[in-house]
């Protein structure tokens, strides 16, 4: 149960407190390196520091082996930044996940993003055994149970509960479309406190989904952060349109990039327009910026979107 000492916060993270205050929050993604380099994590972190309220550390995204999410998160903590640890169900069973959840919380991490995970066939070890002992909804439920009921998934009692603010992803562009808000409701019932959506390029569809979310009253039960990714090149846009599962890149976006000389500048412009649009959608509590291997553009986006300075508590 919630601890009275911290004003009934579930975890007391910066992210949780700002959302409670009603601030329009900014989270940003940091992809750990494919090597044992603290310098590379810290280098990216330095660029991002002060431009977001919390920072996602991806967990071997697209099934490529990378420096661990929790280890990277601790590096950020040491720099005075707030990490959001991503955890997928692909590589660990429930025993390992609970162990890592306890470890992360004991190290001072306060936000956990629960994901099913990209299939291992997309990564650099396609012959690996995909674990998927749990799915993202079961992972959320287990994490909530550990935090709020001091119980392991098995029902066994745990000694010091991991106080984590729980997040999940949701993809408004995946099919079956009508199930997508229902899936969000399941995640909320399982314990989800905040949602970071799939990257939004199809604003019409996102608005349609948000309409269903509001009709179901879900926006009052969970904080929704809209997913934003700047497009770096025409090639990237086409690749995302044709090769990345679960992404919806409309032809207009491709056309806009085709018609301009400075693709990067146009990519940033599209991002800024998206931020402006989602700010005006009822039920959107913030943005989650994922600049894939282009972290250095995040400060410019946050600044030009008028989201600076980030609030302090």
């Amino acid at each position: 149960m919630d601890n009275a000492n911290n004003n009934n916060f579930k975890a007391g993270s910066n992210l949780e407190k700002l959302l409670r205050k009603g601030e329009f929050v900014v989270t940003a993604e940091l992809g750990p390196p494919r090597g044992a380099s603290r310098e590379m994590v810290e280098g990216k972190a330095k660029i991002l520091k002060g431009f977001a309220d919390a920072y996602n550390l991806t967990d071997c995204q697209t099934a490529m082996v990378r420096l661990s999410s929790i280890a990277s998160g601790v590096m950020l903590l040491n720099m005075g930044m707030e990490p959001i640890i991503q955890m997928t169900c692909r590589d660990r069973n429930r025993i390992a996940m609970q162990s890592d959840i306890l470890g992360a919380a004991a190290l001072g991490i306060k936000n956990l993003l629960c994901l099913t995970g990209d299939h291992q066939c997309f990564g650099d070890h396609p012959e690996a055994k995909g674990v998927f002992d749990l799915d993202s909804i079961q992972l959320l439920n287990m994490s909530r149970q550990m935090r709020d009921e001091s119980k392991f998934q098995s029902g066994g009692e745990l000694k010091v509960e991991p106080r984590l603010f729980l997040g999940a992803a949701e993809n408004p562009f995946a099919d079956p479309f009508k199930f997508r808000a229902v899936r969000l409701a399941k995640k909320i019932a399982a314990g989800c406190d905040f949602i970071q959506t799939q990257i939004i390029y199809n604003m019409k569809k996102f608005e349609e989904w948000m309409g269903i979310v509001r009709d179901m009253g879900l926006h009052k039960k969970v904080s929704i952060l809209a997913g934003i990714t700047p497009i770096k090149s025409l090639g990237m846009a086409k690749y995302m349109k044709n090769n990345v599962p679960g992404l919806d890149v409309p032809d207009e976006i491709i056309q806009r990039l085709q018609d301009t000389k400075d693709k990067k500048a146009e990519g940033v412009n599209i991002c800024l327009e998206t931020v402006e649009q989602v700010k005006n959608i009822e039920g959107v509590s913030g943005v989650h910026i994922m600049a894939i291997e282009w972290e250095e553009v995040i400060p410019e986006i946050v600044e030009r979107a008028g989201l600076l300075p980030r609030p302090t508590l």
Partner: peptide
Amino acid sequence: SKSLLNGPCGGSM
């Protein structure tokens, strides 16, 4: 492909 029990993942298109 992931033996999910709670509905489709975000990669169903």
